[in-house]
Amino acid sequence: MIEAIMKKESALNKMNEKTYLIERSKSLYQDAFERLLKDKAAVAAAVVVFFYSVIAILSSMGIIAADWNTEVGPSYSPPSASFWLGTDIFGRDVFTKIIHGTQVAMSVGLFTSLIAIPVGVILGAISGYYGGLVDELIVWFYTTISSIPSIMLIISISLIMGKGLVAVYVALGTTSWVSLCRLIRGEVMKHKNRDYVQAAQALGGSKLRQLFKHILPNVTHIVIINASLQFQIAIKSEVILSFLGIGVQSQPSWGTMIDDAKLELVGRGVWWQLVGATIAMFIIVLAFNILGDALRDALDPKLKGKN
């Protein structure tokens, strides 16, 4: 008898659990993650990004492509079984150089974001939340920065900092926080008068707590979307800086390899450095583009139900 009741009860419990699971609404990120998983292109893009990141980490630890600087064959030998993408002017293997270049490209994207995101988020949040004079000052500051064409700012900063990777990080980082800052400011302004923030205030939450604990988690999706787009812009900008001669020095990057082609194509017909580096870059930039779009579709509540 008791057993039967217990059985019934546990069955009921199970049912309750089930209904509970069904009725419980998904969080924004849960929902976004599920949407992303359904999007085959986005999953492929994420896999590509992961793959490139692994290559970049392995290469920076010296496990792969550490021998990019050794002469392995004759100068400018075309692609063959032993050199998949041929060799460069010094007889170095182009494929190995491309793998090493992954490290440079990913680090440019990463460090640019590491500069731009904190600056953009913190300034934007403070500006949007506190308003008043602080807001005026920050808005003035980013209006000023964005009034100088970024290429002029990048050139000036790299000229001053000297050539090299650090100059590239700083130049691209200082020019790319503005759009994020503007977005965050607008979004925080919208959120700060919402009920949940007022509730937090009524419960005695300090201003900083309201801002960082309550408002910021609600605008993080903007940061994620922005970072994904910022990453590929930084990778593409590295090529232009290499052309201007203010980019990476004394190690191969996709930018310097593409730039080398201006001396290799005419007369010599050496196309493999150009094509190899372009394809390597095309794949990762495309992946970030697709991922950025998919993230925006999945995370931006305004777009829901449109597609």
């Binding site: 090529v239 194509l265 005419v266 870059m281 930039v285 495309l286």
Partner: peptide, 22 residues
Amino acid sequence: CIAGMSIPSLSYILFFQYYLAY
């Protein structure tokens, strides 16, 4: 569009100048 945007500008210039002009 998205594929075209993913190719660096320098590569376009080098390719078209070499192929169409040279």
